[in-house]
């Protein structure tokens, strides 16, 4: 493994390690959330059915209080977040603030992933091009060297 190869790929490898570590840590957080965290997260993703301009977590409307109790009961029973949200949506249609994973709403999830992949590809392409350009202009050409040699020769002739 040459030194230049290492120098070219070391930043990429470092970045990959950081990204994977962050993703693993981020994904692992979900598993250790407390029930209170879950209740807050679900309540924050449901629009108050009475006042509608606030989430169930933030609203003090009676309907929101009832829903907070309902969420706490369901979380206590071990119901999954998705099932609690689905149960609320079935009783209070249109209150979910989580974009749907199907239909046009799915674009909210798909577009960022596609954009990330395209941006990453574009970066790789650009870096390669720049490194090729840098390699092609790395040192003086043969013509340049000949010119300099001739100039030096002439300089030696002068008194």
């Amino acid at each position: 493994m040459t030194r230049s190869f290492l120098r070219a790929w070391l930043p990429w490898a470092t970045m990959a390690v950081i990204v994977v570590t962050v993703l693993v840590l981020g994904a692992g957080r979900g598993g250790t959330r407390s029930n209170k965290d879950r209740i807050d997260a679900i309540a924050a993703s449901v629009r108050c059915p009475e006042c509608r301009s606030e989430t169930v977590r933030d609203s003090s409307a009676p309907a929101a209080l009832n829903l907070r109790d309902f969420i706490a009961t369901e979380v206590g029973k071990g119901t999954s977040d998705a099932d609690v949200r689905a149960a609320i949506e079935s009783r209070f249609p249109g209150t979910s603030l989580v974009p749907p994973s199907t239909g046009v709403g799915a674009l909210v999830w798909i577009v960022p992933i596609v954009a990330t992949v395209v941006a990453g590809g574009a970066l790789v392409f650009a870096f390669r091009r720049w490194s090729r350009q840098a390699a092609s202009t790395a040192g003086p050409s043969e013509d340049d060297r000949a010119l300099v040699a001739a100039a030096l020769e002439h300089a030696g002739d002068e008194p």
């Binding site: 059915p49 409307a61 009676p62 309907a63 009832n66 829903l67 109790d69 609320i88 009783r91 209070f92």
Partner: peptide
């Protein structure tokens, strides 16, 4: 606990 109100989907009185 308001469970019946939630089951019926009561939004406002």
């Amino acid at each position: 606990s308001g469970a019946t109100a939630v089951d019926f989907g009561v939004s406002a009185l």
